[in-house]
Write a protein that binds this DNA or RNA. Structure first.
Length: 819
RNA sequence: GCCCGGGUGGCGAAAUUGGUAGACGCAACGGACUUAAAAUCCGUUGACCUUAUGGUCGUGCGGGUUCAAGUCCCGCCCCGGGCACCA
């Protein structure tokens, strides 16, 4: 074995112990440099790292190390999103307590992260299942409870009648419980909510200020779903009840031909009492999952309730139906149906032979309106609408709203699609909700001095019922002062609660006297947040909401938690998502053992830009390993020819060939700095360094100036690659004769005098087709270029004596003759 | 069903502001080195036509705008993500 060959395992251990010994990644608030908080979405400790983790954390590490070299005071922390459903499943399967399973996983995955050489400040590590963490979440919740932001109401859940437990949507497979196989029912139970809808306007408006991908901002905007409409009350015939609906299209009000309510609606319940067919239909509808994706794709079915609503304008009777696609938790749980101008209402009306009343016509004939085949959903001019005929959308909206408001039959309303956040879960492995119930049913927050409410950890799970309900020590307590018998809330928090504020706790994870202290004001907001695009809506919206709650309670000073967001794509293998069930996973650990962490990091950053999905390739990994070997050999060969130092590379000392080499070096610095610093396109940054290394390898060294140029090229290649492959660069930097570690070096800057090209290639087109390329001195004037181009043999041939109608000229780029 | 992305050689991709399509890498093929293989190094590599110079076509499909379209507009097809209890 060659003493001088590339041995990744050896040099990676050496580099890592150097960083540890020098506490290179410890982040302090006392620095006078500008702060940079770089955060990757923390992992759920599922057992082992997968490639998605490696990709996510490598991106964060590259940016952190780059920003550090740019002189920033960088904090990059890591922790564990440790509560969640899989731990309960694993506990049942392996007979292990969820806490034990989780903590073993954390220990193993921590060692895997360390082996990858990520620049984390491990002193800030936290796990959400630690009582020091959830203590403050409970403390904050009791404030929200007292402020009325947390409240209780009925909500629909998936209920497994055999296991007597609530199921997650994921646990419902083809309408059956995943363990019991029993047909799942929808059931209404009391649940805790947070009033996120109170913050809907701000959550919407502040999106504009964020440096986030437009697609994510659009998704959040649509999710919040602001609409302006009318809430209209229909009276019910022969009944004191009122049927309230919300519509954004009051201009179509005269086209209403039926009403539809959800299976949970009071009118449906009442009508079913003396109608067994209806009762059966409603029971069947309730067997559908609560998942919107499922409800929206099932066969649309309905049944008449046998009662009528009274149209608020015409006074006509309109039949009321129950329909399986009307969502109980959305709007008023009831709709007015206008089949002529809504596609879903149209299909339902056709299926059940309900009337289709056209009340809108297009503005002009260019629009197609064929009510035999589909609804006409565009806005237009009103017809068949009595005194409103001839009005357009906005005047019809105003007129109808005004008239109905006068009669007290409607109010204008801004509505949001966003619903309040359901935060309680009927599960064991989560943060206990710090609420107690007195014997007379009063609900009270647990007092500060009694926090945290600790989750009992040594429990046995069997998959049925609620475990906390069976632990009497937990469930039944007595008041420390009065001795009154009290009962604890046994629900736990949605795990999105923990992930909604961990980014803030990383600023001061050791604070025992407060949830957050002024260190949070120093570090927040997060400068760059990186994670999977699958979190584009829920996690990122909840975290934004929680941040505003923290702000309104004086705990943080910023309005938004994440200044810039980078959403990484998925890691695929053979075109599909890597998953255990498909058996196409690649274990990062095996690859690290075989090639070292740097090779894995390099491949994963080179294979595609971060936002795109990444196709895994074992051959590609080998290619990355080959490149690192070439780079290593190149440096070894260079230094074995002896040290070069202090030779003046200023322009007057260089020949043309040397000037061009130096130009390549500085063009590479310029490109890589832009790719990493601005564009986040690490793949093209790596390609640029590869080109420089290839150029250097081909470059024949004839004198000491050449050797100094090779030194400059290799040093810069090492500096530019050091955020991506930090271990090999740590070693190569010393080998190149430097005494400081590369991590302590500044990011290189390119010299614009060197990068300015003396000549440019101008593309010559005839009618937009490439016909010639001619080299001109940079900045050559238009006349010269055009006359030279026109007399070029090939160009002449294509102009072929025809008249030039027009000449397009783009400086330093192209000439296009239009003939 | 609704919302948001994506589709470029045999493969991963590049083309940053409408201006040279395919940088860089993988695979493949040919050559050098070697007893041989591996490794390494050098070369070729979008398709078709052509002896060659060269030419024609080509960025999911069909239209359009423009001197010029992978890039902009309209209509489709396919794939992926999310849809509120997976994280």
């Amino acid at each position: 074995m060659d003493e001088l060959s590339y041995k990744p395992n050896l040099i990676e251990a050496e580099a890592q112990s150097w960083w540890t010994k020098n506490q290179s990644f410890k982040a302090l608030e006392t620095s006078d440099r500008e702060k940079f908080y770089c955060l990757c979405m923390f992992p759920y400790p599922s057992g082992r790292l997968h490639m998605g983790h490696v990709r996510n954390y490598t991106i964060g590490d590259v940016v952190s190390r780059y920003q550090r070299m740019k002189g920033k005071n960088v904090m990059q922390p890591m922790g564990w999103d440790a509560f969640g459903l899989p731990a309960e499943g694993a506990a049942i399967k392996h007979g292990l307590a969820p806490s034990e399973w989780t903590r073993e996983n954390i220990a193993y995955m921590r060692s895997q992260l360390q082996r990858l050489g990520f620049a984390y400040d491990w002193d800030r590590e936290l796990a959400t299942c630690d009582k020091d963490y959830y203590h403050w979440e409970q403390w904050f919740f009791t404030r929200l409870f007292k402020q009325g932001i947390a409240y209780k109401k009925l909500a629909v859940v998936n209920w497994d009648p055999v296991d007597q437990t609530v199921l997650a949507n994921e646990q419902v497979i083809d309408g059956k419980g995943w363990r019991s196989g029993a047909e799942v029912e929808r059931r209404e139970i009391p649940q805790w909510f947070l009033r996120i809808t109170d913050y809907a306007p701000e959550l919407l408006e502040k999106l504009d200020d964020l440096d986030w991908p437009e697609s994510v901002k659009t998704m959040q905007k649509n999710w919040i779903g602001k609409s302006e409409g009318l809430e209209i009350n229909f009276s019910v015939k022969d009944s004191p009840q009122v049927l309230t609906v919300y519509t954004t299209r009051p201009d179509t009000l005269l086209g209403v031909s039926y009403m539809a309510v959800s299976a949970e609606h009071p009118l449906a319940k009442a009508a079913a009492e003396n109608n067994s067919k209806l009762e059966f239909f409603i029971e069947e509808s309730k067997k559908n999952s609560v998942s919107e994706a499922i409800i929206e794709t099932i066969e649309k079915e309905g049944m008449s309730l046998g009662i009528n609503a009274i149209h608020p304008i015409t006074g006509n009777e309109v039949p009321i139906w129950v329909a399986n696609f009307v969502l109980a938790g959305y709007g008023t749980g009831a709709i007015m149906a206008v089949p002529a101008h809504d596609q879903r209402d149209f299909e339902f009306a056709n299926k059940y032979g309900l009337p289709i009343n056209q009340v809108i016509v297009p503005f002009d004939e260019s629009q197609i309106c064929d009510l035999d085949s589909e609804a006409f959903i565009s806005k237009g001019i009103l017809i068949n609408s009595g005194k409103y005929n001839g009005l357009d959308f906005s005047s019809a909206f105003d007129q109808i709203a005004e008239d109905l408001e006068l009669e007290g039959k409607a109010i204008r309303k801004i509505n949001y699609r966003l619903r309040d956040w359901l935060i309680s879960r009927q599960r064991y492995w989560g943060t206990p909700i710090p609420i107690i119930e007195t014997h007379d049913g009063e609900i009270k927050a647990v007092k500060d001095e009694d926090l945290p409410v600790q989750l009992p950890e040594n429990v046995e799970l069997d998959g049925s019922g609620s475990p906390l309900n069976h632990i009497s020590d937990f469930l039944e307590i007595s008041d420390s002062e009065t001795g009154e018998r009290l009962k604890r809330e046994t629900d736990t928090f949605d795990t999105f609660m923990e992930s909604s504020w961990y980014y803030a706790r990383f600023c001061c994870p050791d604070s025992h006297t407060a949830m957050l202290d002024n260190r949070a004001s120093y570090w927040l907001p997060v400068d760059l947040y990186i994670g999977g695009v699958e979190h584009a809506i829920l996690h990122l919206l909840y975290a934004r909401f929680f941040h505003k709650l923290l702000r309104d309670n004086g705990l943080v000073v910023s309005d938004e938690p994440f200044k810039k967001l980078l959403t990484q794509g998925m890691v695929l293998k053979d075109g599909g998502k890597m998953s255990k069930s498909l058996g196409n996973t690649v274990d990062p650990e095996e690859l690290i053992q075989q090639y070292g962490a740097d090779t894995v990091r390099l491949f994963i950053m080179f294979a595609s830009p971060p936002e795109q999905s990444l196709e895994w390739s074992d051959e590609g990994v080998k290619g990355s390993f080959r490149f690192l070997n070439r780079l290593w050999d190149r440096v070894i060969t260079h230094i074995s020819e002896g040290q070069v130092r202090g030779i003046n590379l200023s322009e007057e000392n260089l020949g043309n060939r040397q000037k061009e080499f130096r130009r390549q070096i500085h063009k590479t610095i310029e490109k890589v700095s832009d790719d990493i610093g601005r564009r986040y396109t690490f793949n093209t940054a790596i390609a640029a360094v590869m080109e420089l290394v290839n150029y250097t390898s081909r470059y024949k060294t004839k004198d000491s100036i050449d050797r100094e140029l090779v030194q400059e090229a290799l040093e810069n290649a090492v500096l530019l690659l050091s955020p991506i492959v930090p271990h090999i660069c740590h070693q190569l930097w010393f080998l190149l004769g430097n005494t400081n570690a590369v991590i302590e070096e500044n990011w290189p800057t390119s010299d614009s005098n060197v990068t300015t090209a003396e000549s440019v290639t101008i593309v010559i087109q005839v009618n937009g087709k490439l016909r010639a390329k001619i080299i001109f001195p940079a900045g050559a004037n238009r006349e010269l270029i055009e006359s030279t181009a026109a007399s070029d043999g090939k160009v002449k041939k294509f102009i072929n004596g025809k008249k030039i109608k027009k000449t397009i000229f783009v400086e330093d780029k192209l000439v296009n003759f239009v003939i």
